[in-house]
Nucleic acid binder design. Structure first.
Length: 424
DNA sequence: TCTGGGGTCCTAGGACCC
DNA sequence: TCTGGGGTCCTAGGACCC
């Protein structure tokens, strides 16, 4: 046992809550948000869950249920969600700088040193403040390790009597919780591990905590499994990571709105994804020295011939120049493209990422010149000021409708588009 | 007809070196 | 018949997360 205290703040049905914020008429309506291309449900309100719609459920399979129950369905509107996420996080930051932004809708707070008697009230105050400032409802779980804080958060959300804040600090509460929580609901225990845990007779969180053979746990579930076990014992193994590390890989991929057959169209999509990835790369002031792409047909469509190929290359010199990355990606595409398949998805991945300021300049040249960097900088600046893709590389094409994803239910960019602000 | 996107960490095993 | 031992680095693939 240690004397640290972690609080996990988690936004309730985050994407749905964002949509509801601008549509108060939907306060009691079941709401769901779909993945890109209007594929699967990635966020559901409790009302939608109650209708039996599962996480990751393809929309077309439950369309009838949605229509019958007047479910408000939305296409993903990530610029809106990111913006609201920033507001939630900055509100939390006002309470403590010891904060880890764990995901778009979750943050760990280090509240070590707080008087344990008052901590429940304090977290209720945090919850109310976030909700008042941003309109996004949250739940908070409090415990001595991150794994247990996750668990406490689960209870806070499931058990209405908690009022959305739950403290898992006393021995009896801990026993009560660990006896009831299934092993698969423990943070870090996924599908494969659950099967192996069950074989060992571990069905509940408590069984893992009390499992005597630590070495066996380590050998089957690796170091990570052992750390989860210790975290259940209130031994903190996962530290709070306050600064967000730079990405080591940047991926940009999309499923096409419709099947694609021509090399020219694949090239356009690849150029677009490469542009997106390079933008992110420059934003974190990095350069990459490896480009990977893949293309594939629709694995769900069994009636057509299947094809999937990955191809990658190392660059002579690390770069953040979109033009060079597109050139490399196109070369990779030409090598693996086969005529006659019905392509459904393409992907660009940048790796071997280094800091732009520190990277080694190649002896053989080919590195980004001052002029290259100036062009990229100008492009980023114009796009930041006048909107995404105001200026883009011609290789990306102009007729995106030919392959771009479907977004039939997209809400306005209430917070990031001047023409789409809420009208009252 | 219609099934997402973007990450991280860990380990085993191969390549290579002396 | 019988052919060493020890170390590092890299990569692919598995598992997990939201």
């Amino acid at each position: 046992m240690n004397n640290r205290i972690f609080a996990l703040v988690d936004c309730n049905s985050f994407y749905c809550s964002c949509e509801r914020l601008f549509r108060p008429d939907l306060r009691t309506t079941p709401v769901g948000v779909l993945s890109n291309n209007d594929g699967c449900f990635v966020s559901r309100t409790s009302e939608l869950k109650a209708l039996g719609v599962k996480m990751g459920e393809p929309y077309f399979k439950v369309k009838d249920i949605c229509v019958k129950n007047k479910v408000a369905v939305f296409s993903a509107n990530f610029s809106l969600y990111t913006n609201l996420s920033d507001r939630v996080m900055s509100t939390l930051f006002d309470f403590t700088p010891n904060l880890e932004v764990y995901s778009v809708d979750e943050a760990f707070l280090d509240l070590t040193g707080f008087d344990e008697k008052n901590i429940l009230d304090y977290c209720r105050h945090i919850k109310e403040t976030v909700e008042r400032n941003t309109g996004i409802p949250v739940g908070i779980g409090i415990a001595r390790t991150k794994v247990l804080a996750k668990l406490a958060n689960r209870i806070a959300k499931k058990d209405k009597s908690t009022g959305g804040v739950y403290r898992l600090l006393t021995k009896d509460k801990l026993e009560y919780a660990l006896e009831r929580v299934d092993i698969e609901d423990v943070w870090g225990i996924g599908r494969q591990s659950t099967i192996k845990m069950n074989e060992l007779g571990i069905k509940k969180a408590k069984h893992l905590r009390d499992y005597r053979n630590d070495k066996l746990i380590q050998s089957i579930f690796t170091k990570v499994g052992r750390m989860i076990q210790d975290e259940l014992r209130e031994i903190s193994c996962f530290p709070l990571n306050e600064e967000t590390p730079k990405k080591k890989e940047i991926i940009s991929s999309r499923t096409f709105g419709r099947p694609v057959y021509e090399l020219a169209m694949l090239r356009e999509s690849i150029a677009c994804y490469a542009s997106l990835a390079c933008e992110k790369l420059r934003k974190q002031q990095s350069v990459c020295q490896e480009v990977e792409i893949f293309v594939r047909t629709n694995p769900f469509k069994e009636s057509v011939a299947q094809y999937m190929r990955v191809n990658s290359m190392k660059l002579d010199s690390a770069t953040c120049d979109t033009r060079k990355v597109i050139k490399a990606a196109w070369k990779l595409l030409d090598e693996i493209f086969i005529n006659g398949y019905e392509y459904k998805k393409a992907c660009v991945k940048l790796s071997r990422i280094q800091d732009a300021s520190e990277h080694q300049i190649s002896f053989f040249g080919g590195h980004d010149t001052i002029e290259d960097l100036a062009i990229m900088k100008a492009m980023d600046k114009i796009n930041a000021r006048d909107g995404h893709e105001t200026l883009k590389i011609a290789a990306c094409g102009v007729n995106k409708e030919a392959w771009y994803m479907n977004q039939v239910f997209k809400s306005p960019r209430y917070l990031t588009g001047w023409n789409e602000l809420l009208k009252i």
